[in-house]
Design a protein around this nucleic acid. Structure first.
Lengths: 203, 203
DNA sequence: GCGATACTGTACCACAGGTACAGTCTGGGT
DNA sequence: ACCCAGACTGTACCTGTGGTACAGTATCGC
């Protein structure tokens, strides 16, 4: 048998799927190794223990998420020079992408970890928090730039408005899963888009 | 030792706390019985197996949640006859209640179960879905009544707008936990309130 | 042929969920 | 005073899982 080079990736992919379906602690090492066809020793060659699997899973997820979303909103900016309209285009693209997923969005590792955070060490919890804060900052900066050009008529809590995207995504994933309805999340994003229009364009 | 009558309740309370902190499968029967001071046989006297604990936990949570939220929005309606303004008062009361919790909101059992749904049987998943749908209906009816009096200038997806509350609550709980910031959720509710004003009052 | 990489195989331990079932204490009703 | 249902305790046992330890092996590139 020739040694494969993608075993670690396949372990992480399978682990991600199982963790989103059953939670981290219910995801047994045995089912992972059975799924990718290695032995327990093979698993512990790649990861010192289950906690290291948890960390690798989170890092991989955060990075994938960042790359996908940055690409979408960058594309929005490319399609429209104005910061507000570029953002509105980005939100539409985001909603379309979510609506066109081949199947139900599998869920967010960060949210899953959040409801099991006592399983993990400080480092993982901090990574998770940093990931959320990064979105607040990225969207917050956008909203700042927009507010400079389109001063909102009322006071708006821009940090909360930035957090609102992550909030709707996390909440939308939960409702979508619970109700087995993949349209919930994209519709929430479109509502958010309406809200942004109302705040900065007043219509 | 005299037999207590509240053992089952104490088991459920402790289980709820642990499940929200570690997830269901990582919550061991041993830690629960140690926490309330009974033996394993005592646990299996109250619950046939762990799955029955899961069901009882969810039912208890859904009922508590329903009672608390209905009381808040009923109070809003009592304070203002108009359906829109009663709802706006209710949202403000809700945000205040969330902001004044003695400590961080412990989280939502339904959301926790959602990210571990393969652990549970069909019945529990259906209960969870029915709980979410009930909120869509309760808020959807309110929004219908409001829209009759205050026709929105644009088309609005009222079902999505009803779901938006649950979405913001679930998402806000996740961000609040991840960032250890109890102000996130109430601020999201206030933003939702602003959105409702913008849609139905146009300001 | 050598060493790094990617594993396998074997053996072992503690703990968790779960099953089974007999025994015990207590308070309330008769 | 007695009985019985409710609320447990005690003991024994089985399986699966996470985790540890460590020696051995196949393959590839240099």
């Amino acid at each position: 048998m020739r040694p494969r080079t993608d075993t670690k990736e396949r372990l992480l992919s399978l682990a991600e799927e199982r963790v989103l379906a059953k939670g981290f602690s219910a995801t047994s090492i045995d089912e992972l190794i059975a799924g990718v066809g290695i032995t327990k020793s093979g698993f512990f060659y790649h990861f010192r223990d289950k906690n290291e699997l948890a960390r690798a899973l989170l890092l991989r997820y955060l990075e994938q998420d960042r790359a996908v979303l940055e690409a979408i909103f960058q594309r929005g900016d490319d399609l429209h020079d104005d910061p507000l309209h570029g953002f509105l285009v980005g939100l539409k693209l985001f909603a379309e992408m979510l609506a066109n997923l081949p199947e139900q969005h599998p869920g967010c590792i960060a949210a899953s970890y959040c409801y099991q955070d006592q399983l993990f060490d400080r480092e993982i919890r901090d990574l998770n928090a940093a990931g959320m804060l990064a979105w607040r900052q990225r969207f917050g900066e956008r909203l700042q730039r927009i507010a400079e050009v389109y001063p909102p008529r009322h006071d708006v809590d821009l940090d909360a408005l930035a957090d609102m995207i992550s909030t709707l995504v996390e909440g939308g994933l939960i409702l979508g899963r619970a109700l087995r309805d993949a349209t919930i999340l994209p519709r929430q994003i479109l509502l958010y888009r309406d809200f942004i229009r109302a705040i900065f364009l007043g219509n």
